[in-house]
C-alpha cells in the first residue's frame, strides 16, 4: 500500500509545502496515522480519501506554523522562464521548482494555496479536493476563483 500511494502523496505534499524535507515528514506521519486507524478504513476509496485528508491537514498545520515569507522572489527567474518560450528539455532541480511555486503562491491564503495546488497542478476534481480539505464544493470553487485571480494579477504585474 505504501509503495502504491507514496508517489502521489509526496507530490501533493511537496507542491503544497514547497519543501522536500517537510514533505517527506508529512508523508511518513500520514502513513503512520493511517496504520493506526487501519481498523476503521476498510474500503480502498475511503483509504484514499483519508490519506489525502491527513496529508492536507498536516500541510495546513505546517503552513500555519511557518512564518510567512512575504515578498519572497527567489523563484521569479524560474517563473519568467516558464512564462517565456521555455525549453522543454531544460533541467531544473526541485529547489528551483519549489522556489518558483513558493513565489507564485506567496500571496495566497493557506486554503487558496491548497485548493489551487490540488486542482491546477495535481488535476484533482472539485469533489476530491472538497473531501480532502473538508470544505464544501462551493467553497472550493470560490477559493479557486480567488486564487486564480490573484495569480493572474501577480503574473501580469511581476513577470514580464
Amino acid at each position: 500500500m505504501v509503495d502504491k500511494k507514496i508517489d502521489k502523496l509526496h507530490a501533493t505534499a511537496i507542491r503544497i509545502c514547497c519543501n522536500t524535507e517537510d514533505a517527506k515528514d508529512i508523508v511518513q506521519e500520514t502513513f503512520v496515522k493511517v496504520w493506526e486507524k487501519r481498523s476503521i478504513l476498510k474500503e480502498e476509496a475511503s483509504l484514499d480519501a483519508f490519506l489525502y485528508r491527513v496529508t492536507v491537514n498536516k500541510c495546513y498545520d505546517l503552513l500555519r506554523k511557518r512564518k510567512r515569507n512575504s515578498g519572497d522572489d527567489a523563484g521569479i527567474d524560474v517563473l519568467k522562464f516558464f512564462a517565456g518560450d521555455q525549453d522543454a528539455d531544460k533541467k531544473l532541480n526541485d529547489d528551483e521548482v519549489n522556489a518558483a511555486l513558493n513565489t507564485l503562491t506567496d500571496k495566497l491564503s493557506i486554503k487558496q494555496k491548497i485548493v489551487f495546488t490540488m486542482v491546477e497542478l495535481e488535476d484533482k476534481s472539485h469533489d476530491e479536493v472538497a473531501l480532502a480539505t473538508g470544505m464544501s464544493k462551493n467553497s472550493v470553487k470560490s477559493n479557486l476563483r480567488h486564487a486564480r485571480k490573484k495569480m493572474e494579477n501577480f503574473a501580469e504585474e511581476y513577470i514580464k
Binding site: 517563473l79 522562464f81 516558464f82 521555455q86
Partner: peptide, 9 residues
C-alpha cells in the same frame, strides 16, 4: 502567462 507557468510547473 499564468497558464504557461502552470503548464511548466
Amino acid at each position: 502567462k499564468l497558464d504557461k507557468i502552470l503548464e511548466g510547473l
